[in-house]
Design a protein around this nucleic acid. Structure first.
Length: 154
DNA sequence: GCCAACGTTGGC
DNA sequence: GCCAACGTTGGC
């Protein structure tokens, strides 16, 4: 049994928020079109925990926790001509893009804003701070736990 | 709405 | 393989 890993995934709450995930129970995470982000998704294992980050929000920040419920499988939206995630360079025989499913775990009682993260020395090495533009990142267990505490959970 | 920071694409 | 042009992300 490999060790559990921790991740951070970004979503614009206007498109899909932690409340939407709470309502739906679980969702598929399609549409990632960045190789680093894809590679991270392919490294995810069922049961890994995910910080759910609200980007392009007021304020931006970590809003809740989710769990990987299905490991990487081909992003079939890339095969659908006319779909906004269509990519002619990806086909069913050799899919270029993958997606995972995540399920709702809990919402943080208090949003841990990006400002909070930047102001916390223990989180200074997070990719969220150092390399802002990656939509799927790995986080360390200590960072994950710190965010949980800051968000009002034990 | 602006624009910095990246990633991707394509000409050469 | 270089690099300019272009597109996207996402904070502000």
């Amino acid at each position: 049994m490999p060790k559990k890993r921790y991740w951070l995934m970004k979503s614009e709450p206007d498109v899909y928020s932690i409340d939407d995930l709470a309502r739906d129970g679980s969702t598929s995470w399609e549409g990632v079109r960045n190789y680093k982000a894809r590679n991270n998704m392919q490294a995810m294992r069922e049961g890994d925990l995910v910080l759910f980050y609200h980007s392009n929000a007021k304020p931006p920040g970590i809003a809740g926790i989710a769990r990987v419920s299905r490991e990487a499988y081909p992003d079939h939206f890339a095969f659908e001509k006319g779909h906004k995630y269509f990519d002619a360079k990806s086909d069913a025989a050799k899919p270029r893009w993958h997606m995972v499913d995540i399920e709702f775990v809990e919402k943080l009682p208090e949003l841990v804003s990006l400002v909070d993260v930047k102001g916390e020395p223990a989180l200074a090495d997070m990719e969220l701070v150092r390399y802002m533009r990656l939509s799927v990142q790995e986080v360390k267990k200590a960072e994950f736990d710190r965010v949980k505490t800051m968000g009002g959970l034990k």
